[in-house]
Structure formats: structure tokens, C-alpha cells
Simulated scan of single mutants.
Amino acid sequence: MKLYGFSASNYYNAVKHLLLAKGLDFEEVKEYPSQNEDYLSIHPLGKVPALVTDQGPMSETDIIMEYVDSLSDPKFFPTEAFEKAKCREIMKVAELYIELPARRNNGEVLIGNPRCETAFREARPLMEKGFKALDTLCQPSPYLMGDKMTAADIFVRYALVVGNMVAAKVYDWKPLDEYPALKAWSKMMREDAVSQKVDQDSQAAMQDLMEYFAQFKK
């Protein structure tokens, strides 16, 4: 398998973490979002990540994660239908109500573009609802769904990379301080051996990412 993307991408890192946690063999192929025809044949929107398998390519982080999880044990998605749905619910809340609203401010945070006042005004209320919903859905003990790490732990960890970064840099806000159980969970996940490997690779890739972003500075 080949995983396309770049090591500073939080969505790429969610898939990478799962692949590493499952001990699967894969090749990393550095690729930034692109409208190049060759890459569009792999990801029809030109985004990252994308996974190329012997049967063909696929895109969208949660879809890739479900496919990867199906390949071998141990399983990170619950097998019982209700529990699997709850796992996906946690992932979706983190994506739609924390990561994606926060991402609207990335031009300011990552590139240094002028503030988008609409994004600034609209993102935080959605993020506040997202963090509150996440706290309601999860009672870490120690993982989000109990005593075993699931795909929810992996996905949410990397969704919150953007959420926490934007909260701090744009709003001078540390949302996890308001939710001690989630804060303790986040610290535990940060200390996980796979998380540390992924984080090290992400830090090493930051300079290249900044050079890539420079072309979009207004």
C-alpha cells in the first residue's frame, strides 16, 4: 500500500497512526494537495490523504481508516453495530464541529494572511459546541470509549491538533482546560509510542510545509 500526503497533515497522520498501530506495511509518498492530472487519478479532488491499494485508490480519512482496520487484527473499530456507530459519531463530531470550523482560520494561523473576520466570528461558537458535545459523548476511562484504544481516539487526537492550535493562536483559548477528562486523555495519547513517532515526523516536515504555504501568502 502507498499512503499519499505529507507528514504535517493531521488527516494524513490519523491514517498513518492507524497503519503503524496495526503493524501494516506501507510506503509513504509525499504529496501536497494538487490538481495535477496524475494525482487526480488517485484522489479525484486532489486532496490528502489518499491510499493506493492493489485493488485501486481510495480517499477520505474515515473511509481509509475503516478499510485499513478491516485488513488485520487488532481491530480499532468496534465490531458490534451500535458501538461502531458511536465510534463514528465521536469521530464525526470532532471533524464537523471542531476541526473544520477551526480550519477556516488556517490562512491566518499557518500562512500569515489577513484575518477573515467571518471565519473568526463564526468558528469559535461552533468549536465551543463541538468540545461540549465531545465531552458529553466521551467519558475517558482511559480511552474515549473505555479501556481499549479505538479509531475514535486516533481520529480525534489529530482533529484536535488543528482545533487546539487555532483556539490558542486566534482566540487565546485553551478549550481542553475546560474539560479535565479530555485533557487527561489528550496527555495520555500524546505519550503513546506511535503518537510520538508520528509527531516527530510531523515536526520534521514543518519547514517544507512552510515553504509550500509561502506561495499562498497574500
Rank of each mutant, 00 (worst) to 15 (best):
D69Q: 05
Q139S: 14
E99W: 06
F77E: 03
M1L: 15
D73I: 10
D73C: 10
D201N: 13
L19G: 00
V68A: 00
K197L: 14
F82I: 13
E83A: 13
A14P: 03
Q200T: 14
P57I: 07
A14K: 12
T61I: 04
K132R: 14
K218I: 11
D69R: 00
S34F: 08
P57H: 05
A159Y: 06
R88E: 06
K92L: 14
E95D: 15
M91D: 01
D135V: 09
P140G: 03
N164V: 07
D153E: 03
M188I: 10
S202Q: 09
I42P: 00
L19R: 01
S59C: 15
W185Q: 01
D69G: 01
E99M: 14
G163D: 01
L24V: 06
A167Q: 01
R190V: 11
K84T: 05
E83C: 07
L96C: 10
K169T: 13
S202I: 01
P140W: 06
V161H: 08
P175G: 04
F120E: 07
A14N: 02
G107V: 05
E95R: 06
G107M: 06
S195R: 01
F213I: 02
V194E: 01
M165S: 09
K16E: 07
Y12W: 11
I63G: 08
L51F: 08
Y67G: 02
L45D: 09
V29I: 15
A133P: 05
K2P: 03
P140L: 05
G56M: 09
I111P: 00
K92V: 12
Y67Q: 03
E128A: 12
V93C: 02
V162K: 00
V166H: 01
Y158N: 01
S59I: 08
R88I: 11
G112Q: 07
D153N: 04
S70H: 08
K16T: 04
P49Q: 05
S59G: 06
A85W: 08
A50G: 05
N105C: 15
D38F: 11
A168R: 14
A8K: 04
A85D: 05
E28P: 04
D147N: 11
Q139E: 14
